[in-house]
């Protein structure tokens, strides 16, 4: 499991505002792909189009195609609910459901899909929490509120919640930006471990992070405020950070811009 994603001619709008224009890229299975770029360049927007979360915002829409193993997510008959179950997502700020315990948070997605058997749920909770490197820390207090954990633990809980429904792809929108350095390191370790089972796409504004965890990197940028963001360069991470083709990429990764 884990699928390839092809993005063809993708343009995303917020109402009349064109946020990002004409993006083409291919995300390889069981790889970590990083989206980097200055703020406002549309990297998070592109990420959100990959599981049809973009259209949740009022007035937001998408043109172009996003192919998941060749099947267009925006094609006729596609159900966004099923798309989101297949393409999981972790957000910038940890957002465990505040009214639920740790256990209930992990199984939230499974319960939606009608899994009721206690034994299966227990098994999946342990599996997911182990997968998110959180099991040892919380196994004695699964009934406590998820919101009572530290920020880093909450984010790993959210990752456990996302992988519990066994998605093909995991999208991460700046998952460490609200965390301290130690928690960040824990999440980065986790990402490296998770890529053996999932296709991972991560948005980050931290270039060291991109170079540490990703196999491929996409650099987005925009000419000036108000213009749509564009994909400037997409290549192997090592190439982007050592010998990029585009001048703008080099300026950005060397810290001369942005």
């Amino acid at each position: 499991m884990a699928t390839r994603i092809d993005v063809n001619g993708l343009t995303a709008y917020y109402g009349k505002f064109k946020a990002v224009a004409d993006v083409n890229l291919t995300i390889e299975p069981k790889n970590v792909t990083a989206f980097i770029g200055p703020s406002g360049c549309g990297k998070s927007t592109v990420l959100r189009t990959l599981n049809r979360m973009h259209e949740v915002l009022p007035g937001a829409r998408v043109e172009g195609r996003v192919l998941l193993d060749g099947e267009d997510l925006y094609g006729a008959g596609m159900d966004p609910v099923n798309v989101r179950r297949t393409v999981g997502m972790v957000f910038q700020r940890p957002n465990p459901f505040p009214t639920m315990s740790i256990y209930e948070n992990v199984i939230a997605g499974l319960k939606l899909n009608g899994v009721r058997k206690k034994a299966l749920l227990d098994e999946r909770v342990e599996e997911s929490l182990r997968g998110a490197n959180l099991w040892e820390e919380v196994k004695d207090r699964l009934g406590r509120p998820g919101a009572g954990l530290s920020g880093g633990q909450q984010q790993r809980l959210c990752i456990a919640r996302a992988i519990a429904v066994e998605p093909q792809v995991l999208l991460m929108d700046e998952p460490c930006s609200a965390l301290d350095p130690i928690s960040t390191l824990a999440i980065e370790d986790l990402i490296t471990k998770l890529k053996s089972s999932f296709t991972i796409v991560i948005v980050t504004h931290n270039m060291q992070q991109a170079s540490r965890v990703s196999d491929a990197t996409a650099f987005f940028s925009l000419e000036k405020t108000g213009d749509p963001g564009r994909l400037v360069e997409f290549d192997k991470t090592s190439k982007i950070f050592s010998n990029p083709t585009e001048k703008r990429t080099e300026d950005y990764v060397s810290g001369r811009f942005g």
Partner: peptide, 18 residues
Amino acid sequence: SGPAVDGTADRLGLRGQS
């Protein structure tokens, strides 16, 4: 694997009647 093979959507279960 590879693009546009019929039935992939069924494998991923992306479709839904609406």
